[in-house]
Simulated assay, not measured.
Amino acid sequence: MGSDLAQDVRNLSTEALGRQMNIVGSPSEAPFPKNVGLLFFNETPHRFFPATQIDVVWFPEGAGGDRFEEKIFQGPLARMTREALDFIQRNYLKETVVKHPDRAEAERFWNFPYAAIEEAVVNAVYHRSYQEREPIEVRISPDDLVVLSFPGPDRSMRMEDLRAGKAVSRRYRNRRIGEFLKELDLTEGRSTGIPKILKVMKENGSPTPEFESDDDRTSFLIRLPVHDRAMIQTTKVGAQSGPSRDQVTPQVTPQVHKLVAAIGGELTRAEMMDALGLKDRMHFANDYLQPALAAGLIEMTIPDKPQSSKQKYRLTAAGRALLQQPAGSQDGADV
């Protein structure tokens, strides 16, 4: 990152380099890695600090539903953080396009703005206690994205100031971790995370985020509500509609279109995956099945029992209408 030390690294021993970076301590006859060194430069820091991980949990039916899918990220802090963020960005962030008949520019917004998620997750990595045997948890549902970490903000910060984006920490729980995250361009380290979350959520047109902690500051929760219109499709694919000021383009990605085209009659999940040549159940659920269900292009044959072993899926009227449209006319397709 432009450090003078990078120019001398080949001429230094591992111990000398570690001491220069202040991640190795103790006398020279018995050098020992410091905690920050183990967290950033050991492949398995969870061996030394249990539950050093990020759990990403997806609830397709909402937090009260019976189904969820989980992926756990471990490893050096910077890599773990980036891999978790990349996974969330690939699988759960969707852009909606709103076209206006009275002007050329379309309105675009995300269900959750990536910059807000990045700040929330990095904030959790920076400020969590590595003595707590609790992972950072990112809970995603159609309604919100929640980042939970332990413990909560330092008592020197008032929650009302924090919610307003005006809180400035007088004490940093993990100053060395913050220094490394700053060097890696993952944080600014100047209490700017919460104000940035508020700013990018507002710019995206999203509802105001929520910040919660109990009186004892045992945990900290950041809740990012989904954009109000990201879940709403005012005009179904192929449906006839009268004059409308706004039209929300359905999320008909190439994957969704492939799934719709592959369904003939009623098919089980396994039969759909086989027809598409897919093996990864999570990839199929996130990129094909759930978006097609959300867009109203397919439906369950037993909707009141989503987990039924006899569950199958079929096209809706909107799905059949989509297949009748000329190739390339699906405005919502991602390219």
Rank of each mutant, 00 (worst) to 15 (best):
G189H: 05
R190G: 00
R190K: 13
S191Y: 07
T192K: 15
I194L: 08
I194H: 10
P195N: 09
K199A: 06
K199L: 06
V200P: 03
K202Y: 12
E203P: 00
G205Q: 10
S206K: 06
T208M: 08
P209W: 08
P209E: 15
P209M: 09
F211R: 15
E212Q: 11
E212T: 08
S213H: 09
D215V: 09
D215A: 15
D216G: 03
D216Q: 15
S219Y: 13
S219G: 11
F220T: 06
L221C: 09
I222R: 07
I222F: 07
R223S: 07
L224E: 15
P225F: 00
P225H: 03
P225K: 01
V226K: 09
V226N: 11
H227R: 04
D228I: 02
D228Q: 04
R229Y: 08
A230N: 09
Q233R: 04
Q233P: 10
T234I: 02
T235E: 07
K236L: 14
V237P: 09
Q240K: 15
Q240C: 01
S241M: 01
S241D: 07
G242V: 09
S244Q: 15
D246R: 15
V248G: 13
T249D: 12
Q251Y: 11
V252H: 04
T253P: 04
T253A: 06
P254I: 13
P254M: 08
Q255P: 05
Q255A: 07
V256R: 08
H257R: 11
V260A: 12
V260R: 01
A262N: 03
G264Q: 14
G265C: 04
G265N: 08
E266A: 13
R269Q: 14
R269F: 00
E271I: 01
M272P: 00
A275K: 08
L276A: 01
L276R: 01
G277R: 02
G277I: 06
G277T: 05
L278K: 02
L278P: 02
L278V: 07
K279P: 02
D280K: 02
M282V: 11
F284C: 00
A285R: 10
N286M: 14
N286T: 11
L289W: 10
L289C: 00
A292E: 06
